[in-house]
């Protein structure tokens, strides 16, 4: 088992950031995590979002979380991006590779990856 001392060191390093995060009104990335989403591959999609958001140093402005079934199971894995003051963007049939592009282009540089959105799938 890894040492708890290592965990305590992480705590000391992150303490100041937590204060920042509590008042945050940033972007929310929501992944559908019902049976339909999970069986279509939502777990690696969510975990890739978490990893890429951290790699791109966006953890202070972006939270990654889950929701239940949105009702469009045939398009799972479905990801919704909520940015304050903007219209919701719905990405469909997501994969870890598509996630990397969405993080780099949309979350980091503000350019929606239209070809992955539901409007393009229908």
């Amino acid at each position: 088992m890894k040492s708890l001392a290592e965990l305590a060191a992480i705590r000391d390093k992150m303490k100041d950031k937590v204060v920042l995060r509590e008042g945050m009104t940033g972007t929310r990335v929501v992944v559908g995590m019902a049976t339909c989403g999970i069986s279509a591959g939502a777990r690696p999609v969510l975990n890739t979002f978490v990893e890429e958001v951290s790699k791109e140093n966006l953890t202070d402005s972006v939270t990654v979380t889950q929701t239940g079934c949105i009702g469009i199971c045939q398009y799972e894995p479905v990801v919704e991006v909520f940015e304050p003051g903007k219209e919701k963007v719905t990405y469909v049939k997501m994969t870890p590779d598509k996630v990397k592009r969405v993080v780099a282009e949309h979350l980091k540089n503000g350019r929606v990856v239209s070809e992955y959105t539901i409007g393009n799938a229908q």
Binding site: L7, I10, R11, K15, V50, E51, S54
Partner: peptide
């Protein structure tokens, strides 16, 4: 883990990596 972490949430990326390792 939460007892050690105090106010630092469990879904902090570094904490999740610690759990994975």
């Amino acid at each position: 883990l939460r007892q050690v972490l105090g106010d630092v949430p469990l879904n902090t990326y570094e904490v999740l990596q610690w759990i994975r390792e």
